[in-house]
Nucleic acid binder design. Structure first.
Lengths: 230, 230
DNA sequence: CGCGGCTTTGATGTTCATCAAGTAAAGTGG
DNA sequence: CCACTTTACTTGATGAACATCAAAGCCGCG
């Protein structure tokens, strides 16, 4: 068995992104310590308040980041696919998670002990630089998205979310929403009832079609207008 | 003249935070390339869309981070004092600024060419680690704050902002708001008129006193209740 | 089968934005 | 320094946007 096959990380599609700056022997060391986990929809990947012991990244799937309030309500920060990950946010500044991460679709994560990552950051400047870039990008994206949502009214927020989901997450005008109506509400900071009313209105105006969780955007242009001007 | 006095950075009160991991000769090199700038209230420190050429940190003062919309409206991301800085957000992932920074009080910044910082990140692991920690902390804080604001109604948002300003920024129950009413509105995503109405209501309920820009919190407990329960 | 959670619709009242109008404050040019 | 302009601040009235409450249908799961 050649060294090429000793470690599957060499073929990981995320290697370029996360570890392009890592030398062969460092990669091997990481690889032997990594843990791959499979999650089904609804499974918790990260629990708020738990100690951060690993650097976790998403290999495939779709997840939601959220925080739970004392009153039982939840607020969704963002929805993320691979490459926009996410265990990034607090791991270098806190020793416990400030939010939870839950799988929306079947997902696979890969974890590396945090001390390995810290060691690598300190010993490999190019790696440090690339982690900085990624982290900067991830938090920038979340903040920008929150501002985009905040400046819109209900209808505009729903339109924005539908377009975002279609273009960035599903890459198709027809898609199965992995979010419940309630989760959409938690995402955009409105009530479930009003989310539904907005969707119904879009359906009646023939802008979208609704088949339960499956949404089809019929009139992309009008949806974009609503997203822009309310 | 001894080496100790060759470079004032050695005595900079921010040295510990930003450069504790930097060796003496590296510090000297940074120091000779740094630029210190003084800003008056209203002055722009960073202009949205401008190319990022320097790593800028706040030595003293108070600033607002905001983005300008096409329609001329502005949205404030956060208000920051030193240590919670801020030129951090996109500098490692973008080559231009995504937001503007303007001085609210008289402020002093210190700038270091970006290539110096990048070089240092790549050559000094401990420095890289400390920048990662700081960046993580800064973006975490902004996101958390936006969630706190989002979950409240008008009255709660105003109460939250007043308490935040009093406790985190002014460190006193009586303080001079560096923000205009309009800026408060841009900060919490409401209209100027409703910000004023809320302040007036608090004044009439004897929760605060208002002398133009100077606010005095009289009934801290009730303000905290309003912040918590609306 | 029945229970609980999600979804949907309607009715109602609260919260909020918008418009209008007036006052105060602050900057500008002669 | 004063008239002038502009910008910030303030209050009220109105209607639109939104939350809340209530009730009923639906679906999955034990």
């Amino acid at each position: 068995m050649g060294i090429d096959t000793l470690c599957s990380c060499e073929n990981c599609e995320l290697r370029e992104l996360f570890f392009s700056s890592v030398e062969r022997d460092e990669l091997f060391s990481l690889c032997t310590q990594r843990t791959e986990v499979n999650y089904f929809p609804g499974d918790f990947i990260i629990q708020q308040e738990m100690p951060i012991e690993e650097f976790i990244y998403l290999k495939s799937g779709l997840v939601k980041l959220f925080i739970s309030e004392e009153n039982g309500k939840e607020q969704i920060l963002t929805i993320a696919r691979p490459f926009n990950f996410v265990s990034m946010l607090s791991i270098f500044s806190s020793n416990k998670y400030n939010y939870s991460v839950q799988a929306l679709e079947q997902s696979v994560t890969c974890s590396i002990p945090m001390n390995q990552i810290n060691q690598l950051v300190e010993s490999n400047g190019r790696f440090a630089r690339s982690v900085l870039g990624k982290m900067s990008q991830v938090s920038d994206k979340i903040i920008k998205e929150m501002m985009e949502i905040r400046k819109r009214h209900l209808r505009g927020r729903i339109a924005y979310i539908l377009l975002y989901y279609s273009k960035e997450l599903a890459h198709s005008p027809e898609f199965e929403l992995a979010l419940s109506r309630k989760e959409i509400a938690e995402y955009i900071g409105m009530t479930t009832e009003n989310v539904i009313r907005s969707l119904t209105e879009f359906r009646k105006s023939k802008i979208i079609k609704i088949f339960g969780k499956v949404i089809e955007i019929i009139d992309m242009q009008r949806l974009e207008q609503i997203s822009k001007f309310g």
